[in-house]
Design a protein around this nucleic acid. Structure first.
Lengths: 157, 157
DNA sequence: TTGGGTGCAAAGGCTTTGCATGTGA
DNA sequence: TCACATGCAAAGCCTTTGCACCCAA
């Protein structure tokens, strides 16, 4: 994942922006938690361990920057926080999004890769004349672990 | 859609809650805009035409109530507002969600019914052990009208 | 040197809450 | 009557913005 950082640096320079410690640290925080979907506050706490002087405003500003540069993706679970994750593709070709599986019990977010939505997109395009360029899929349910525990709890009753 | 209102009244009574003018008016506002996805503020403005004395807080409280009763659905387009729409099924059996098509040009939200996600859900269940109970699908792109206009604009160049 | 970047605190904008008053049952 | 509901205003909460100072280039 080092090339993501390189890419960031290049993009910054290309746009006449500066490569600062804070910006790199924020990207690193997101890279170190590839499975997590961090809130701004969580990123802030994360970076603060290494750099206690960083301000929350900087985190927000950098997040916005990273979003504009397509290096990270927003994720809204509807809990009042916007979450962020490292984007899956380095370039800006049509995104092959993964889907999010959100456990209603433990709150964990799993990801799932799949192309099965292509069919649906084609269908929408043909029947409704709507050209799909991106999509966002969230599945709510119960993860393997929680289901096992539910079964266990039932048995011990 | 009258039965939705009846259902609301019944549910209120069943829960020891009161049938008030405001609650009915708010549900009506949502019923009168079946295609729209109204924000709290929009519902407020809508109801205020008939009942200028209503307070925004009441709208928020009623929205929350309607959500808990499964009579309306939340929709988050990521623009900082939560939107609400009349739910599609009256009962609480497994939801047959429609999907949302959001035009990146005009901002209109279309809906699309489809079962094609069932396959995907089964797949997820089998490969990951994740039990899907609900889903939310948003497609971003360009609607028929906007695409036509884009073509027209191109020609006149 | 110098223009963009950062930190801090204040301001914004949506939503919730506290409280006194109002009202459906 | 009386518990629940409403309206208003204040408070909450996440996020953005203004401004003086700082620092990468």
């Amino acid at each position: 994942m080092l090339d993501k950082q390189e890419r960031f640096k290049t993009l910054l320079k290309e746009n006449g922006l500066k490569v600062t410690t804070q910006r790199i640290e924020i990207l690193e925080a997101l890279e170190n938690r590839p499975d997590k979907h961090l809130t701004a506050e969580e990123i802030y706490e994360c970076v603060k361990e290494k750099n206690p002087d960083i301000g929350l405003a900087t985190v927000y500003r950098t997040i916005q920057l990273l979003t504009e540069l397509n290096l990270i993706d927003k994720l809204n679970l509807g809990d009042g926080f916007v979450r962020y994750e490292i984007g899956r593709q380095g370039s800006d070709d049509k995104a092959h999004h993964h889907h999010h599986l959100i456990c209603l019990n433990c709150g964990n977010v799993l990801t799932f890769q799949g192309d099965l939505l292509d069919t649906l997109e084609h269908h929408i395009q043909e029947t409704m004349g709507f050209e799909v360029v991106d999509h966002e899929v969230k599945m709510f349910g119960y993860c393997k672990t929680c289901r096992k525990e539910a079964v266990k709890a039932k048995k011990s009753n």
